[in-house]
Simulated scan of single mutants.
Amino acid sequence: STITRVAAEQDAVFSFEGSDASGTLRLATSGIGSAYLTVHGKSSHAGARPEGGVNALYELSHQVLQMKDLSKPEQGLKLNWTVSKSGTNRNVIPAEATAQADARALKVSDFDELETALQDKIKNRLLPDSKVDVKFEVRRPPLEANDASRRVAGQGKTIYQELGMPLNVAERATGGGTDAAFAALKTKGAVVEGMGLSGFGAHSNDAEYVQINSIVPRLYLTTRIIMDLSNGKLK
């Protein structure tokens, strides 16, 4: 991608997604994947001849339920079914049903393992005459901490100490993903996420906010780190 190509030529990459309420810098984020489940059945009149159909909604429900325990939180692998759709009319046995799942992982190999598990699960069908397909795609790779990122984050902590403020640094992903992970694929430089303003409630419809008093410290932090990188104080 363009991000990967351009980042490979840089000494450091900063991503200005919002931080948490304490202003934590993130050196690692989860990879993001998506699973797409499609069930094909057969339509029929739900009142006059339901037995003539193959209920895609029943099969979809069966598949989602048998896939609900594929998460492995202890290793950062998460799979959650979040969107589903079936049917066209109340009085028609649905001939098609679909569902989508959000997946998170700390390693690309975990995504490979998850995809294999999904393909294995769909072999077990509730309705033998139904057809079930599942597709999986990695949308963003995991971001993993490296030594360059640790050095930059360490300098950030020193700068905040000069301001009389603490600065937390997280080297383990907490579930969120980032486009900055593409920057880390081929670079040896630092990639630091969470350089944006402190706040809370990301993606909430009524509880998201930023802390106004984090604006000046964040601008100062960014400026100082760029200056230190430019004059050779930070390598």
Rank of each mutant, 00 (worst) to 15 (best):
N168P: 02
K78I: 03
K121P: 04
P141W: 01
A95G: 08
A181R: 00
Y209T: 12
V192N: 03
L163N: 09
N91L: 05
K188F: 06
T82F: 05
Q119T: 13
G189E: 07
A183Y: 00
G154F: 15
G177A: 07
L163T: 08
L197W: 13
G201S: 08
T116H: 13
G176P: 00
G196K: 02
L163V: 02
S198W: 07
E162N: 05
L114M: 04
K85W: 05
E137S: 04
G176W: 02
V134T: 12
D179Y: 02
K186A: 10
T178A: 09
Q119S: 08
S109E: 11
S130F: 01
G199D: 11
R150D: 07
F111Y: 10
R90G: 05
Y209C: 14
F182S: 00
G189D: 08
K188Y: 07
G189L: 08
A97N: 08
D179G: 13
G154W: 12
A173V: 08
N89G: 06
G87W: 00
P142G: 04
G194M: 08
P128Q: 11
L197I: 09
R125E: 15
E115D: 12
A148R: 00
G164S: 04
N124W: 13
G201A: 04
S204P: 07
E208Q: 12
S149V: 11
G87N: 02
V169W: 07
G199C: 14
P94N: 03
V152L: 03
G176N: 03
A99D: 03
L167F: 03
V191A: 00
T178Q: 08
A145S: 15
D120E: 11
L143P: 01
P94E: 12
I159S: 02
N146V: 03
T82I: 02
A190H: 04
K186L: 10
F136K: 11
S130L: 04
A207L: 15
V169F: 02
